[in-house]
């Protein structure tokens, strides 16, 4: 009996796995307190900066692209579509490499943080533009007709009547995209930005504490993503309008 337990422990089976897990956590409290968590807090701060700067800019650029695709002249539509095809089709990691390693070879040096930021904004805006385009196109033609019958210009009709309705319909998609943004901000690590993931990786390699570092950073992400999801849900309820809500343009994706 005792032998079999010992054997499992030594083999690293399931029982041993949890035994090891508990042991290592307890014995490493100082490591967590003094090394790991401070590093992760610093990383979290950088992640937050990336996310908070990308979200509004990616959204506005996405709206611009979407409006161009729906209401623009032929060449504008075409350019906007090309933009979407490129930045949706190109893996974000490849895009980051182009910005960080490629651009300097033609004399444009953005640096780590800027490369990540620019890459995120381009990617985020391309995806957002698809949700927004679907929402814009779902607004009935009569809405713009009615606006124009009151003497509004096309611009005014689009701005005051179509876009406010479309925004509400695109909200589920756009907020999904925000959750994705939190997660793909981790790719910044690859272009040497020390955000959450980067911080964890550095500690993991330096102290050879892979399990601890990645478990901890995983918990960080789960907590942030869960809080953001709940927060966004509240926001959606708050801005819901009878007869205007509802998901449109379901272009889901993940990173």
């Amino acid at each position: 009996m005792t032998d079999s337990i010992n054997a499992t422990g030594a083999d690293g089976g399931l029982g041993g796995f949890f035994q090891n897990l508990t042991d290592s956590i307890i014995s490493q409290i100082p490591f967590w307190q003094d090394v790991l968590l401070p590093a992760l807090w610093d990383g979290l701060w950088v992640t937050m900066q990336l996310v908070v700067m990308t979200a509004p800019l990616g959204f506005l650029l996405g709206l611009l692209i979407a409006v161009s695709r729906v209401y623009g002249s032929a060449p504008v539509k075409w350019l906007a579509q090309l933009y979407v095809i490129f930045f949706r089709g190109c893996p974000l990691l490849v895009l980051l490499f182009i910005l960080y390693f490629g651009l300097p070879s033609v004399g444009i040096v953005l640096g780590s943080f800027m490369s990540a930021l620019v890459g995120f904004i381009l990617c985020n805006s391309a995806y957002n533009s698809e949700y927004l385009r679907g929402a814009l196109q779902s607004i009935k033609r009569g809405q713009l007709l009615a606006a124009r019958s009151l003497g509004m210009t096309k611009m005014q009709g689009v701005m005051y009547v179509v876009v406010p309705q479309a925004l509400r319909r695109a909200l589920p998609g756009v907020s999904n995209e925000f959750i994705y943004l939190i997660k793909y901000s981790s790719l910044a690590y690859v272009v040497a930005v020390i955000e959450l993931t980067g911080a964890a990786k550095i500690i993991a390699s330096k102290y050879f504490m892979y399990f601890e570092a990645f478990a901890a950073v995983g918990i960080f992400y789960l907590v942030i993503v869960t809080i953001a999801t709940i927060g966004i849900h509240r926001l959606e309820m708050k801005y819901a309008i009878p007869g205007v809500s509802g998901a449109v343009g379901k272009v889901s994706k993940g990173h």
Binding site: G12, K183, Y184, S185, S186, Y189, T197, A204, Y210, F214
Partner: peptide
């Protein structure tokens, strides 16, 4: 699996979970 970034999942499984489980 939806709450974690890909890159963290890869690190977690490659460097930690799988080696830990032998």
């Amino acid at each position: 699996f939806r709450g974690l970034p890909n890159i963290v999942l890869l690190f977690l499984f490659y460097f930690a979970l799988f080696p830990f489980m032998g």
